[in-house]
Design a protein around this nucleic acid. Structure first.
Length: 296
DNA sequence: CCACAGGGCGGCA
DNA sequence: TGCCGCCCTGTG
């Protein structure tokens, strides 16, 4: 493991709070100084924002390239200002929604981690989802110790810290159902274990799925037990770069029914969203979702 | 004690 | 196809 640091200047549309608290990720925590610390595939990262400067440091795996990782993970190649202009044209609701979450960026996370995380999210709430993910990471993931010296570089206080990487598919697949039950996943534990076995045995190939077109990929994902339309769309949007993915949960259902299209049929809401926003449907969903949640 | 939380599944008409 | 009860667990 090694320490590294990068800075990005003049990144438009990036607010850590909005990006990390809009519900797309579960392992980023706010620090007392307002920065955020999270566990990602290459290690532990801390993100600070000073005016328009983004400072990212991390304690990383030896072969990690922090700058390249961040450009991808934080979706830096996308022009969010242009997307916002496009989707808010002639749409007052969307204009308002965007004004609440201008700084949301869609993260490019690890497909495997998203698969398990969103299986866990079913009929669950965010604090408990985070707790479940911490539990399985502690039990089956690799431990990362941050010494006082490194801690001093990364954080405002220099206490030693311990983190756990998200478990690999093969390590999680080694669990028994009884063991996994101790992680308090509830009825979702059998889905998590089954999915782990599918991935670790290569019966399901997430990289291959991520290269398929949106509809084909969604169909493949929903073949996995515990993965329905909403969970599949979350995986597709937050880890497979599918901008058309439009996760329809209870909140989005409500706001879509109120403003755009009145139907109980989730598939129809999906089709409406793709028709209206195309490849920007997913980011549109995030603005609407964040807006609705911030306003109860 | 009861309802419900960012769903999905299986059984039923 | 469309609807509904149920699934674990923690919290109000």
């Amino acid at each position: 493991m090694k320490y590294d640091k990068v800075e990005f200047q003049n990144i438009k549309c990036f607010e850590p709070k909005e990006t990390f608290e809009c519900g797309q990720c579960f392992r980023w925590k706010r620090e007392e100084d307002g920065s955020y610390t999270g566990v990602v595939s290459i290690g532990v990262l801390n993100v600070k924002k000073n005016n328009s400067k983004i400072i990212i440091c991390g304690y990383l795996k030896d072969d990690a390239n922090l700058e390249r990782f961040c450009k991808d993970y934080f979706d830096m190649q996308n022009d969010y200002e242009e997307i916002q202009n496009t989707i808010s044209k002639d749409d007052l609701t969307m204009k308002k929604a965007i004004s609440y979450g201008e700084g949301i960026r869609i993260l490019n996370q690890d497909p495997w981690e998203m698969l398990i995380s969103f299986i866990i999210s079913a009929a669950n709430n965010i604090p408990r989802i985070s707790k479940c993910i911490e539990n399985i990471s502690q039990k089956y993931g690799e431990k990362v110790c941050i010494s006082k010296e490194i801690s001093k570089e990364m954080f405002t206080n220099s206490d030693e810290r311990e983190y756990y990487l998200f478990p690999t598919p093969s390590n999680l697949a080694k669990a028994t159902l009884e063991e996994l039950r101790e992680c308090n996943l509830g009825f979702r534990d059998k889905y998590v274990l089954n999915a782990s076995k599918l991935i670790s045995s290569y019966q399901v190939d997430l990289i291959a799925i991520s290269k398929m077109n949106y509809l084909k990929a969604k169909k493949e994902l929903t073949n996995i037990d515990g993965v329905g339309s909403k969970v599949a769309d979350c995986i597709l949007l937050f880890s497979m770069n599918k901008g058309e993915a439009f996760p329809v949960d209870t909140w989005i259902k409500k706001i879509m029914n109120e403003i755009y299209v009145e139907t109980k049929d989730i598939k129809k809401i999906n089709e409406y969203a793709i028709e209206k926003w195309g490849i920007n449907a997913g980011i549109a969903q995030q603005y609407l979702f964040y807006y609705r949640r911030e306003n109860n």
